[in-house]
Simulated assay, not measured.
Amino acid sequence: MPIADTAVWAAGARVAGDVPFDLVLETAAERDGFAWVDMVDPTEAELRQVADELDLHHLLVEDVVARGQRPKLEGYGATEYCVVHRVEPEGGIEGLALTPRAVLYALLDDAADAHERLAMDVHAQIEGVEDVFFAEEHPPTVDIYRTMRRVLALQRAADPMSDVVARVASRTPEGELELHRHLRDVDDHARRTATRLSGDRDLLASMLQLATARVAERQNDEMRAMTEQQIVQNDQTKKVTSWAAILFAPTLIAGIYGMNFTHMPELHWLLGYPFAVVLMLAFAGVLHRVFKRKHWL
């Protein structure tokens, strides 16, 4: 069974010696303390074995087995089930009596501090992305998207923390004033982190929209340039086609009369040459006028 540690705490200190798991609750009751059971990556069967020993509600066990739960605090009779993410234990419990609820406060405090540090790291990363965004021609869309995913993942862990702390405070006896003060401090950290992450998410969303707009604008400019180039090419093609047609008529007439067949009356006609020239000019003039009216020239 992957139990990393079992311990009994009483009178503000850990009871010396290792306490077997099957005796941890009995020992805690005898010492008027509380038990600590630390499990690392347990299987479903192992979790259910521990749940049977601790008499845990089956819905609680299902939540633990499913994993990926949002931070929350739920009550199952005399049992309270709390989920927090990214807990990085660093500090201790100062100025508080060592009770299960004080331990829960310490876990929440460490989680809130970890969220705040991660939020500050993400904010610094966003500032770097923002500098690149306005300094370079091509916006770092991939970096923006990846940073937004990191913000959203952190939000899923940090946003519910304030509600969790509020529920813990509501279940804490009013006489434990110092613990209430500490919980309010955790709540302040959680709210500050949630506000920072919300602002960062909105900033990234705006940057992503602006990046999309810049890409679309650049594509429109490229399409406009291509269209203008096609228009110029079409105009040039029309001009070449028009002049080719205009020159084709005189060439055709000259080619016909240039064959010099014997039986061609116009070859021996006194006005044959002027007639051919006038005919060439007439055809060319008519075609030029037609193409001019069609705006091909």
Rank of each mutant, 00 (worst) to 15 (best):
Q219Y: 07
D187F: 05
L208W: 01
Q219N: 15
R167Q: 10
R201Y: 15
R156V: 06
Q229N: 09
A166N: 06
A166K: 09
P173S: 02
G199H: 07
R167E: 12
M223P: 00
Q209V: 02
H189N: 08
V164G: 05
S198H: 05
V165I: 12
R171Y: 00
T195G: 10
E176L: 13
N220Q: 13
A158N: 04
N220L: 12
R167H: 06
A216Q: 11
Q229W: 09
R156N: 05
V186P: 00
R181G: 04
D163Y: 09
L183W: 08
R171W: 01
S170A: 14
A211K: 06
L203I: 12
L197W: 07
S198P: 00
G199A: 07
H182S: 07
A194C: 06
E217A: 13
R218L: 02
V186I: 08
V232M: 12
L203G: 02
R191L: 11
R218E: 15
E174P: 00
Q230P: 00
V168S: 12
L197Q: 02
A216I: 02
D187Y: 02
R214W: 10
D185A: 10
L197P: 03
L154H: 07
V186K: 01
L177C: 00
A166Q: 05
D163S: 10
D221S: 09
A169W: 06
Q209K: 08
E176D: 15
G199I: 05
L204S: 05
Q230C: 00
L203Y: 01
L204I: 11
M207D: 10
T212D: 13
H189S: 06
V165W: 10
L197R: 01
A211Q: 05
A225H: 14
R181I: 00
S170G: 01
R196G: 03
S162M: 06
D188F: 07
R201I: 01
D185R: 12
L183G: 10
L204W: 04
E174F: 02
E228K: 10
R167G: 03
S170I: 04
L154R: 05
V165Y: 09
L177G: 04
E217D: 15
V168R: 05
R224H: 12
D159I: 11
L154K: 04
A225P: 00
A157R: 02
D188Y: 04
A166F: 08
R184W: 04
S162N: 02
A205F: 00
G175F: 00
T195S: 09
G199C: 00
L183I: 08
L197C: 02
A158F: 05
Q229G: 14
E174Q: 07
E174A: 13
E178I: 03
V215K: 10
A158D: 03
A158G: 07
A225R: 15
V165K: 09
L154C: 06
L197N: 00
S206N: 15
L203K: 09
D221G: 03
A158T: 04
A225Q: 14
L197T: 04
R214P: 03
D200E: 13
I231A: 11
S162H: 08
L204E: 10
E176K: 11
D159T: 14
L197M: 02
V215N: 13
P160H: 14
I231L: 15
P173K: 09
A205D: 13
A211P: 03
A190L: 06
A166I: 10
R171G: 11
R191A: 13
H180W: 03
